[in-house]
Computed example of a mutant assay.
Amino acid sequence: MLVVIDVQNDTFDERGSNFAEWSKVIEEGVAKRIDQSIENNESIIYTKNLYPDFEYDERSAESIHFDEAIYPKFYTRLEDYGDEYTKTFYGIPPNHAQNIYENYKDEVETNQTIEFIGVETNVCVLANIMVIQNIFPEANITVNKKLVAAASDDLHDKTLEVLSNMNVFVVE
């Protein structure tokens, strides 16, 4: 199973409110990994971060909706082959977590590897790994360190170190 975290315009498009150059570094690898999952008929879960209501006090709805959209390079792949879970803050909310458990428990029991890719390593990737690890404690959780990124290289590296100490396999 592949879990793709927040591959949205907000971080991948130069016009996004949180765009950073590091997203361009992982963009092609993320697309290839999604394609590999599709070719292997592997389940794909992806998160879409929705901005909270208070954001509308600070900027336009148009700007927010642009940022929330899945980046075009990934959109068709994920829309056609993935299972979307929305969140307003960092991690998948409990009701969605329950749905993931119900929808994927048999698959995880037979193939216990769940790989994470996306952004940001130290925020949403970390938070959602913790959610999924609590849903499927017997699963082998992996994070591909070349397919996750953060605005801060230091926090990225520290988060990968913390994850490796939490029974998460950090792979390349």
Rank of each mutant, 00 (worst) to 15 (best):
M1W: 05
L2S: 05
V3P: 01
V3T: 11
N9C: 08
N9Q: 08
D10P: 00
F12Y: 03
S17A: 15
N18V: 00
N18M: 07
F19Q: 06
F19D: 04
A20K: 07
E21R: 12
W22Y: 05
S23W: 04
V25W: 03
V25Y: 01
E28W: 02
G29V: 02
K32M: 08
R33N: 11
R33Y: 12
S37I: 09
S37Y: 09
I38Q: 10
E39K: 14
N40F: 11
N40Q: 15
E42M: 10
E42S: 13
E42P: 02
I44T: 05
T47C: 02
T47N: 05
T47M: 03
K48A: 02
N49A: 01
Y51L: 09
Y56F: 09
D57C: 00
E58I: 01
S60N: 07
S60H: 11
S60T: 14
A61P: 01
A61C: 00
S63V: 07
I64L: 00
H65G: 00
H65R: 15
H65D: 04
D67I: 02
E68Q: 14
A69T: 06
P72S: 13
K73R: 11
Y75G: 07
Y75M: 12
Y75C: 07
L78V: 08
D80P: 04
Y81N: 14
Y81D: 11
Y81S: 12
D83V: 03
D83W: 14
Y85I: 04
Y85D: 02
T86G: 07
T88D: 01
T88P: 00
G91L: 07
I92R: 03
P94Q: 13
P94K: 10
N95T: 08
N95A: 13
Q98R: 06
Q98G: 07
Y101P: 04
E102A: 10
N103T: 02
Y104T: 11
K105L: 13
D106A: 03
D106Y: 04
D106C: 00
E109W: 04
T110L: 11
T110Y: 03
N111K: 11
Q112G: 12
I114H: 14
I114G: 07
I114C: 09
E115V: 11
F116L: 09
V119T: 10
T121L: 04
T121N: 10
N122I: 00
V123I: 12
C124S: 06
V125P: 01
L126D: 12
I129N: 13
M130N: 13
V131E: 08
N134Y: 09
I135E: 11
F136G: 12
A139S: 15
N140C: 06
N140H: 08
N144P: 12
N144I: 04
K146T: 14
L147P: 02
V148C: 13
A149C: 15
A149F: 07
D153C: 00
D154K: 15
D157S: 15
L160K: 08
L160R: 04
E161Y: 06
E161K: 12
E161N: 08
E161S: 11
V162K: 15
S164C: 14
V168E: 10
V170C: 12
V171D: 15
